[in-house]
Amino acid sequence: MIRVIPRLIFELVFLRPITLLVVGLRLKHPERLPKKGPALLVANHNSHLDTPVLFSLFSLGRVHRVCAVAAHDYWFGNPLLALFSKYVMNLVPVKRKREEGESVEDILANVFKALEENKIVIFFPEGSRGEPEQRSTIRSGIDVICSKFPNLKVCPVFLHGLGKVMPRGDPIVVPFFCDVVVGEPITGHNDEKPSKKIAAIFDELEKEVDRPLWH
């Protein structure tokens, strides 16, 4: 239990004030969120704030059961940052580049482990943040996870506005209200490729959001 204390303190004094007051969320369909793990929360990725925002969808009593996938080279680059990422942010490292002889399964081993521990895992299937407020194609990692866990509950979440608040390459935070639209969870991944299904769901969820021009 002691291990979750730094996580909770950081969440309470830093992450939640930022996501709820500075940013401000317009949450649609929160009842569709998974109540318990194992489950995967998949979202489009535009900003470093995406992860804290997705964490804030869970109550403080449950948030330590939620972890997020993060780039190994970035968040676990030095030992001190790695400690912070692991214990304070609840991040799960995934390598972005495969080395000789490594399979996709090897790279995703930490995600599998977290799911086997019945955790809710935040996963960005686009891989990286990309251009602000533009979706990029969903990569194959999600299909690999789903073929290993065919009955896994996968809950798609569409995020809008965080790329305006804090886009890639700009450390300054500019407040905007952001939209978080939770989709119906999908499960039973035998027929169609999950990556395709999720892309289609993102298309639908995107329509529920008023998007003022941002250019």
């Binding site: 700009d170 300054i172 500019v174 407040p175 905007f176 209200f177 003022p212 021009l213 941002w214 250019h215």
Partner: peptide, 19 residues
């Protein structure tokens, strides 16, 4: 003000002006 700026079209170049 945040609601207003989230409602109207804004320019990406103006992030610092909005700040």
């Amino acid at each position: 003000l945040k609601e207003y700026l989230s409602l109207i079209p804004t320019r990406r170049a103006d992030r610092r002006v909005l700040l």
